[in-house]
């Protein structure tokens, strides 16, 4: 007997909430990015759990695509962070306030 669907969903929601908390809390752009990845992985966990308990494979395929898009997103995002660091010499969000007049 395995754990039920609700356990997996609670865990997924908890991970998502923790990632959200980290995004709001932290000032370092890189750590914020890591927390975003955590939120993505939490959503994939929910997809896989639903897929398993419904006996359909579509959730798994979606997780495939999410993994691919996440990899592309990380590459582009980190390139942007490196470009930002080159220009401003910092990645702390409270110092990136050029839009403030």
């Amino acid at each position: 007997m395995n754990a039920g669907l609700s356990e997996y969903l609670v865990l997924s929601g908890l991970l998502f909430a923790l990632g959200f908390f980290g995004v709001l809390l932290r000032k370092n752009t890189l750590v914020i990015y890591m927390c975003l990845e955590l939120m993505l992985v939490a959503s994939t966990l929910a997809l896989v759990a639903f897929s398993r308990f419904n006996g359909a494979l579509d959730g798994h395929i979606f997780v495939f695509f999410i993994l691919t898009v996440a990899a592309a997103e990380v590459a582009v995002g980190l390139a942007i962070i490196v470009a930002l660091f080159r220009k401003r010499q910092t990645v702390q969000v409270d110092e990136l306030n050029s839009l403030k007049s």
Binding site: V41, S51, R52, H60, V63, F64, A70, V74, A75, L78
Partner: peptide, 20 residues
Amino acid sequence: AYLLAALLVLVYAGAVVALF
């Protein structure tokens, strides 16, 4: 989801965290 477990370790743990 054994394939997805392997892919998660390969793509995320192997590539993404190494990039970070």
